[in-house]
Amino acid sequence: MQLFFDLLIAIIIIITAFPAVILLYSRKIRKNCWEYKHKKSSLTISIILLFFTALTVYGSFVEPNFLIVNKYNIDLPNINEPIKIVLISDLQAGKYKQTNWTKKVVNKILTLTPDLIFIGGDQIDNENYNFIELSYLEPFKKLSNQIPTYAINGNHEYGVSCFYGINEKCSQTGDMSAETKNVFEKLNIKYLINQTEKITINSSSFYLFGGDEYWAKKLDFSNLKNRKENIPTIALIHNPSFILDNHPFFDLVLSGHTHGGQIRLPFVGPIGRVDNILPSKYYQGVQELSDNTKLLVTSGVGETGVRARLFNPPEIVLITIK
């Protein structure tokens, strides 16, 4: 798959850059050709072609190496002191993102001095059931040694993809969820699988529910019945598509999965679609659902499929709940 997309990128660059160079050469040297006689038109066409060349190169090899921080302030009930939470998702460690990228993400997070770190699934790409991808996660130990860190499964841990929804036939590569959990726990990261944990920090408390993967049909809310206190509940669930089914109320849901579409065009929105079901308004940012649940979806720190991002750089989300 990587070879296919890299070949596609190369073809786009060739079919835009090469004709542009020929046009520019002809309008200057070949006096009897159309390009020479219509210099303005040939220049305009060349500029348009080179623009798409530059856009392809930028989106494939420049923007994916950016790492920005997007900040959100979210009000939740019964929070006495502000709590800073870093959310990252979709590292997709593998063919595009490896150890050096993980180090970059970790070092950037540490500069933000959060109280908690949540890792929202798809830690590995798992396109070909390649265990070397797990070694790219090692730098996360630097985080967990200093800051309480929690993680959950995504669909790539299970190697499952359901473009037409979970009730249709899904594709499967290989299940690496147990191996990923084992690696993270060795890195001192709390790995939640349909578990609820009370967290108290900065004189404030909330429940954190770490849900298992929706596409793998393993998301189970039954553990939530153990909640006894009147404090907020934050759900960390990789795939926001679960909101389209019946689900309990949460004060805040933190998700990833969508990559924000990876490529986003002005006035159009996300181009890359994770399925044909989830509305594009839920691909990035904060939304309020009909039951007043706040949903925050991050566009993630990695790529899958094509090695491209456009107008949608990798992001770390810094949330201040208060």
Results as ranks from 00 to 15, higher is better:
residue 237 I to Q: 03
residue 221 F to L: 03
residue 100 N to A: 15
residue 109 I to G: 04
residue 5 F to W: 12
residue 222 S to H: 14
residue 145 N to G: 03
residue 25 Y to P: 02
residue 157 E to W: 01
residue 188 N to T: 13
residue 118 F to N: 02
residue 46 S to M: 07
residue 297 V to F: 11
residue 120 G to A: 00
residue 94 G to E: 10
residue 88 I to E: 01
residue 8 L to H: 03
residue 46 S to E: 02
residue 28 K to F: 13
residue 57 V to L: 15
residue 258 T to V: 06
residue 238 H to T: 03
residue 244 L to Q: 09
residue 277 I to P: 05
residue 78 N to W: 10
residue 286 V to Q: 07
residue 53 T to F: 07
residue 287 Q to R: 14
residue 235 A to R: 01
residue 88 I to N: 03
residue 217 K to G: 05
residue 249 F to N: 13
residue 251 D to T: 07
residue 74 I to Q: 04
residue 136 Y to M: 04
residue 143 L to T: 00
residue 20 A to W: 09
residue 258 T to I: 07
residue 302 G to S: 10
residue 297 V to C: 04
residue 272 G to W: 00
residue 148 P to F: 09
residue 144 S to P: 10
residue 101 W to I: 04
residue 189 I to W: 00
residue 231 I to D: 04
residue 205 S to G: 13
residue 277 I to V: 12
residue 263 I to W: 06
residue 152 I to F: 06
residue 169 K to D: 12
residue 160 V to C: 07
residue 305 G to V: 12
residue 189 I to G: 00
residue 276 N to H: 11
residue 128 N to W: 11
residue 76 L to V: 13
residue 100 N to E: 15
residue 179 E to S: 15
residue 66 F to S: 09
residue 144 S to A: 15
residue 36 Y to P: 01
residue 194 N to T: 05
residue 92 Q to I: 05
residue 312 N to A: 10
residue 114 P to W: 08
residue 281 K to T: 10
residue 183 V to I: 14
residue 87 L to F: 06
residue 89 S to C: 05
residue 95 K to C: 07
residue 251 D to F: 10
residue 162 C to T: 10
residue 166 I to G: 00
residue 221 F to K: 02
residue 119 I to V: 09
residue 98 Q to N: 14
residue 261 G to L: 02
residue 13 I to Y: 05
residue 320 T to Y: 02
residue 252 L to C: 06
residue 99 T to I: 15
residue 128 N to I: 10
residue 114 P to T: 08
residue 235 A to W: 01
residue 198 K to V: 07
residue 260 G to H: 02
residue 85 I to V: 11
residue 134 L to I: 04
residue 291 D to T: 08
